[in-house]
Structures are given as C-alpha cells and as structure tokens.
C-alpha cells in the first residue's frame, strides 16, 4: 500500500510569546515544529506499514532549515521517502493552491492508495485542505478520526463529534484526516536518527507543480483576550456559603451560561 502524508511546519503554539505593547506574536521567538496532528498522521501511516507493509511518503512545502529538519525527523520515525517542494513563504499560500500543489504531486509521484493527514495544523486550524483534496482527487474523505483501524481491506475510523461518536468504514483509495487523539507518535531512537541522516531529502521546484501562486496576506495576528466580568461575591462568614452559591448561580443564569 502506498501512503502519502502531506505535512506542515507550524508554530509551536505552546511556546507563543506576545509583544506586550502591540499584542502581536513575536514570530522569531516562537519555535517551529511539525503540526501535532500531522505527526499523528505519520504514526498511523507507519502502523499500517508495520503490519501490512507498503511505503510511506511525506511531502511539505517550504525552504528553511526547520523544513529540512522536519523531513529528517519524519525519516527518523520511519517513512520511506521525503519530498520538499521548495518555496520561501509557504505560510502565505492559500489553502486551495496548497491543495492543487498536493494534487499535482499526487499525479506526478503517485497514485497513492491512501492520503493520511492531520485534522488541522497547530497554528491555523482551518481544516480546509482535507475537503479540497477530497474534491480535487475525487477520493472519499474519512474526516477527523480519533481512532483508526485497518483490517487489511477496510479502514474503520471513529470520530467524536458534538452530537455523538461517528464510526466510518471505507476501502482505499481514500483520504483520512486524524486528530491528535488518534495515537501517541513514536519517538525515534538514536539508531533511527543515525539512519535518517543517510536518507535523501528530495527537493522539487514549486513551479513544476503549480503555474502561479496567489498570496493570501495575513494582515494582523493579535492575542485573543477574554474579557472577564470580575464579578466578586463576598461573604462574611461560613453561614453565608449557601447564599453565595445561590448568587453565583443567578449570575451564571443571567449570562445564559446555565
């Protein structure tokens, strides 16, 4: 089975630092890493490979040292091929064009039986790529699975939605997006890392995959601030606790929260 995993280098949102005066992120101080859900997608692909054999390919768009490192990390996890479609500002490529680039990659290097991808990236959370790719490739989409099994013929995935847990079943070819709940990605050993060092990172020109790139400007990113009511209810003695609870309940009811 041939599996393609498109991956994205994103901001490590656990380490975001904001400029106190402007409220904007200090990008140069934020480490970059593979999107968490993309890493889980690689893990799912490798689990299938471990059990049923096959080949796992990862592809990303970018050009920085961090992009090379991300692909090296994917090799250390155990993927078979890593491709870097070179472009200096991948964060400004609109999602529909990313989808077209991946489609073009699929046609030149594929076909692939399964495309496994992260539900969303750490930094934009748009979840748009999976649907676009499904449409462009005419592959069914098993969306946002928290648990995935493959019995050799069928994929069975379950997804926890607000209205309940959905269980899907489908045969390849298909696209599956996975959440960070799907697994705990493997951590490469030193041997894996030393082996990965010898693997080639295949560099590709973006112009071979798309004619022209439009730019989606990100005009401003600012810290999301939750406005607090700071409603303080004071009590004089322990005897007033019950009264205070009633008052809190009334406030919450007034806000429509309960």
């Amino acid at each position: 089975m041939k599996i393609l995993v498109p991956i994205k280098l994103s901001l490590d949102t656990s380490q975001i630092k904001f400029d106190e005066s402007t409220g904007e992120p200090i990008y140069e101080a934020i480490p970059k890493k593979i999107s968490d859900a993309d890493k889980c997608a690689i893990e799912e692909a490798l689990k299938i490979k471990d059990k049923y054999q096959g080949a796992v390919t990862v592809v990303t768009i970018g050009s920085t040292k961090d992009h090379y490192r991300m692909l090296r990390d994917a090799y250390a996890m155990g993927v078979d091929e890593a491709y870097l479609i070179k472009y200096d500002s991948p964060e400004y490529i609109p999602a529909n064009q990313v989808a077209n680039i991946i489609k073009s990659f699929f046609e030149k290097h594929g076909p692939y039986d399964v495309i496994l991808m992260g539900q969303w990236s750490n930094d934009t959370h748009s979840s748009s790529l999976q649907g676009m790719l499904s449409s462009l490739l005419n592959y069914p989409l098993m969306p946002n699975v928290d648990k995935l099994d493959f019995d050799g013929t069928f994929f069975i995935g379950s997804s926890n939605m607000e209205d309940g847990t959905y269980t899907f079943k489908a045969k390849p070819p298909l696209i599956i997006s996975v959440s960070t709940e799907a697994n705990l990605p493997r951590i490469p050993t030193l041997k894996d890392i030393l082996r990965a060092k010898k693997m080639p990172i295949n560099e590709l020109n973006i112009s071979d995959y798309i004619e022209s790139i439009g730019k989606l400007d990100i005009v401003k990113v600012s810290r999301y601030v939750v406005e607090r009511l700071r409603n303080i209810i004071k009590i004089e003695s322990e005897d007033d606790v019950a009264k205070a609870i009633d008052m809190i309940v009334n406030v919450l009811k007034g806000e429509g929260l309960i």
Partner: peptide, 17 residues
C-alpha cells in the same frame, strides 16, 4: 550536529512523556 540535536529532542520528548 543535526543528529545530536535530533537525539536531544528525542530524549527530551521521551523524558517529558
């Protein structure tokens, strides 16, 4: 080196987990 950094990160991830 890159391998040393990758190894450090892997031990860090293991230890954190």
């Amino acid at each position: 080196s890159e391998e040393e950094e990758m190894f450090r990160d892997s031990v860090r991830e293991f230890s954190e987990r």
